[in-house]
Design a protein around this nucleic acid. Structure first.
Lengths: 159, 159
DNA sequence: CGCCCGACAGGGCATAATGCTCAGAATCCA
DNA sequence: TGGATTCTGAGCATTATGCCCTGTCGGGCG
C-alpha cells in the first residue's frame, strides 16, 4: 500500500498544482497551461481519481460561512474498550468535523466548529455525555498561523 | 463579521450539499437536482464564492497519494515573543500542512504528514531546530475514527 | 535487436455546457 | 401598495466535453 501510493509522477503533481491554482479551470485551459494535450490531462485526471488522489469536496466548505466561526481541537480520553462504539456516538454530533485516534497522551483528537463560545461549551458537554468518555481537553484555535497548504509538498514530491 | 458569515440560507446549503455529492457535476445537472433554474445556481455559486464559502482546492489533495501516508499532530510549545517569526520558519517545512495557534496547554498545533516513521522523526527534528521552539509533543494518527465530513453540519445549519 | 505496449499528441465529431443577456413573474420588505 | 430583489426560462454565440482514432515515441522484455 505504501509503495502503490507513490505512483504519482511530476506531471501528476504539476496537474494537481494547476488545479489548486484554478479549481474552476476547464480541462482545455489546464492542458494549455501545462503544455499537454487535452487527452493527456483527461487521462491523468481519471488516473488521479482512480488513485484516490482527491479527497471529498466537503473539505472545501468553509464552516465560518455557515455561521460556525469558532474552531477548536478537543482531545478526548476514553475507556479503551468503548472506543469503537464511541466513534459512532460522536459522529452523531454534527459540529465534529473530523476525529483521529492517536498515539500519545490523548486517545482521540476532534476537530470541532461552533457558533460561539457558549455553543462550544454545549458541544463539549455533549461529548462528555457520550458513553466511554472519561475526560476532554479543549483548545480553541485563536489564529491560523499556517493556513492549510499543499503546494510546498507538491513541489517537494514532484519529479 | 460573525453575523455577516451567517448569510447562507437553505438553498445555499442544499447547493453545497449537492456539490459535495457530485464535485464534478455541471451547473445544469446541479440545477436539475435542486429544482432550480440554471441561472439561479450560477448566481448562487458566484455569491458563495464572494462570501468565501469555498476554501482552497488543496484541501482535497490526498497526501497519501503523494506518498505521505503518515499523519501526525504535533503540539509545539514556544517562547511567546517568537511566535510570529516562528510561524514563518515553520512554513518553510513542506510537510507541515496546517498550523493553529491555540489556547490551552500547547501554543501551536501542527498537522504534519510524513513518508514513514523515520521521516516523521526527521521532521520533528526540524521543528525542534526552529528558533523559539521549546518542546514538541508528537501524536501519530492511527486511524481516522470520524472521517472528515460536513454534511451533518450542512443539514443542521440549513433553513 | 525487434516487437509489443503504454503514454502522449493532435485531429475530429456530435452533443452538452457556459457566460451572459433579457423580459416577465414571484416574493419580500417598508 | 409600490419598489426592490430574486427567480425563472428562453435564447445566442462560443466553448468544452466525452469519446474515438491514428501516428509517434520510449521503455521493457524476450
Amino acid at each position: 500500500m505504501l509503495r502503490i501510493m507513490q505512483a504519482l509522477d511530476g506531471t501528476d503533481t504539476r496537474l494537481l498544482s494547476a488545479m489548486a491554482k484554478d479549481p474552476r479551470g476547464t480541462v482545455v485551459a489546464l492542458a494549455q497551461k501545462l503544455g499537454l494535450s487535452r487527452n493527456t490531462v483527461q487521462a491523468r485526471m481519471a488516473q488521479l481519481e482512480k488513485k484516490h488522489a482527491f479527497l471529498s469536496f466537503e473539505r472545501r466548505i468553509n464552516p465560518a460561512a455557515l455561521g460556525y466561526p469558532l474552531l477548536a481541537f478537543i482531545s478526548v480520553h476514553v475507556q479503551q474498550q468503548k472506543l469503537g462504539q464511541l466513534a459512532v456516538e460522536l459522529a452523531g454530533i454534527p459540529e465534529i468535523l473530523e476525529g483521529h485516534g492517536l498515539t500519545g497522551s490523548a486517545d482521540l483528537l476532534l476537530r470541532v466548529v461552533a457558533l460561539d463560545a457558549e455553543d462550544l461549551f454545549r458541544i463539549n458537554g455533549k461529548i462528555l455525555g457520550c458513553d466511554g468518555v472519561e475526560r476532554t481537553d479543549t483548545a480553541l484555535a485563536m489564529q491560523e498561523m499556517i493556513p492549510y497548504r499543499m503546494q510546498p509538498l507538491l513541489k517537494k514530491s514532484g519529479g
